[in-house]
Simulated assay, not measured.
Amino acid sequence: MAEHGAPAPAIPNGGCAGRLPGNKVTVVLGAQWGDEGKGKVVDLLAQDADIVCRCQGGNNAGHTVVVDSVEYDFHLLPSGIINPKVTAFIVIFISLVFDFHQAADGIQEQQRQEQAGKNLGTTKKGIGPVYSSKAARSGLRMCDLVSDFDEFSERFKVLANQYKAIYPTLEIDIEGELKKLKVILNSGFFLIGTYPFVTSSNCTVGGVCTGLGMPPQNIGEVYGVVKAYTTRVGIGAFPTEQDNEIGELLQMRGKEFGVTTGRKRRCGWLDLVQLRYAYMINGFTALALTKLDILDVFPEIKVGVAYKLEGEVIPHFPANHEVLSKVEVKYETLPGWDTDISNARTFDELPVNAQNYVRFIEMELGVPGK
């Protein structure tokens, strides 16, 4: 956490914070399948920051922050916006998301189900199609909307008709959409996984540079947010998943439901193979371990430390999803602590076995916890 007078945070997916141009920023990244508790970490870091910024993704995100017993659910705004001393920015340089992007997202999911017998489990918020528009250089940006509405309208019609040609069943009320956008324009603006089962935005540390438009040397601390166990929403390989009473207990104690979709999260033991890969990609300087107290009731706790394929340990995280779905997990078993730690506020207040669990994760990853 940044101290008074020191460089302060920047946060993709949950925001970013810094003091002056050129100062170092602190990055907060999810290290697992999502839902690690990034919003809470951002809110804590924002207490010592002047600026908090979100630079990736769309309104498919879900960050929950509880302040003075009031629960706030954020889908697009940076989580640190609750702090009255912080200036909040949204700097997401992607195309605007229109209703037909969301409709196309739903059609794509239906087509996958019909053609391949399975879909990706997306939130159907249109994030994939809008990034496709960006990559194809046909997307429309906020600056297009505010600079010349007549020109924007013509380009909007071209894009809408392209989507109608691709998806014949797609119905688009072009004039109705433009009318809504005109109302928004007149109201004013504050401008400021495993593939393919992934979000469409760039949620690695590299996304900070492209999303915020800053050079790599401006990045300081990189916090990897890690849930003390593992969860995943939707479809996709999940090697340490516990589709049994253990998973149900984790789900119940952790209240594991998606903030955006309300879907039940799949639950399992902590996966260090996955976390080592996330560390390799992002170079975390510290870990923010969340939801440790959910493990209070387990007499013993397993941690996935390696993957086996056909009986042999493989030395890497599989890039191929089909391979990942076939691996067998090698577990290390640690003793539980059978104590309520929800009121612990320092490391020293944790029981010895809980401390050992944290130290085991730090040692295996080579990254200190904070």
Rank of each mutant, 00 (worst) to 15 (best):
P84T: 04
K255Y: 15
L96Q: 12
L159G: 11
I184H: 13
V208L: 01
V28K: 00
N356P: 07
L185T: 02
T261L: 07
G283E: 03
M280F: 10
V205E: 01
E241Y: 04
N202L: 04
Q274L: 08
F197Y: 11
A344N: 09
L292N: 02
S325M: 04
V42W: 05
T260R: 02
E221G: 06
R345A: 12
G234T: 08
F298Y: 09
L77Y: 14
I107S: 09
L309C: 11
G57N: 01
P168F: 06
Q274H: 12
L249D: 09
K157Y: 15
A306E: 05
W33R: 02
V41L: 13
A31V: 01
G34F: 09
L212I: 01
C209M: 06
K308P: 05
L365A: 13
K125W: 01
A237T: 04
S153W: 08
I192Q: 14
Y357K: 04
G39T: 07
V65H: 06
S325E: 15
L292R: 00
L270V: 07
A49L: 06
N59F: 02
P318K: 04
I294M: 03
C267R: 04
V146S: 15
N60C: 08
L159Q: 03
N13E: 12
D68K: 07
L96V: 09
L249K: 10
S79M: 06
K330P: 15
G234L: 00
G34M: 02
I92C: 14
G206A: 04
A88Y: 01
Q47H: 08
G22R: 00
E151P: 10
P78T: 11
V42Q: 11
S187M: 14
T122F: 11
S132A: 14
R345G: 15
Y229D: 06
E3C: 09
P196K: 05
D340W: 10
I294F: 01
F197A: 13
L350S: 02
I172G: 02
V297I: 04
R263K: 14
C55D: 07
S325T: 03
R137G: 15
R253S: 15
N202Y: 08
P215I: 04
G126F: 00
Q56V: 00
C55K: 00
R19S: 08
D173W: 01
C53Q: 03
C143D: 13
A288E: 12
E177V: 02
G236A: 12
S187K: 14
L178R: 06
A278S: 10
L20D: 15
H63Y: 11
E154C: 14
Q355H: 07
R253N: 07
K302P: 05
A49G: 13
G14C: 14
C203A: 07
N202P: 04
M363R: 11
E332M: 11
R112G: 13
